[in-house]
Amino acid sequence: MIDWAAFFVVAAAALVAACAIVTLFSLALRFGDGATTGSWQRRVSVGLYVLCALVVLFGIYLIIPALHGG
C-alpha cells in the first residue's frame, strides 16, 4: 500500500536539500552584509553564492530528464 520507505527517503532528501540551500544562502548574505569590496568576507560570500548556483543547476539537471536519462 503506502511505500513508507520511499516516503522517508523523500522526506529526508527534501529536508537536507532545503536546509542546505537556505544555510548556504543565509551565510552568503551574512558574510556579504556590509563587507567592502576585496575583503575576505566578500570573497567567502561570493563563494557561497557560487555554491548556491551549483545547487540550483543541480535542480535544473534533476528537472530535465534528457540530462539524466529519464
Binding site: 523523500v10 532528501a13 532545503a18 528537472i63
Partner: peptide
C-alpha cells in the same frame, strides 16, 4: 526552497506529491 526540494525529491525518489 522547501517547495522545490520537496517536489524534486518526490518526483525523483518515487513518492508522488
Amino acid at each position: 526552497a522547501s517547495t522545490t526540494a520537496t517536489i524534486l525529491a518526490s518526483s525523483h525518489l518515487g513518492f508522488a506529491l
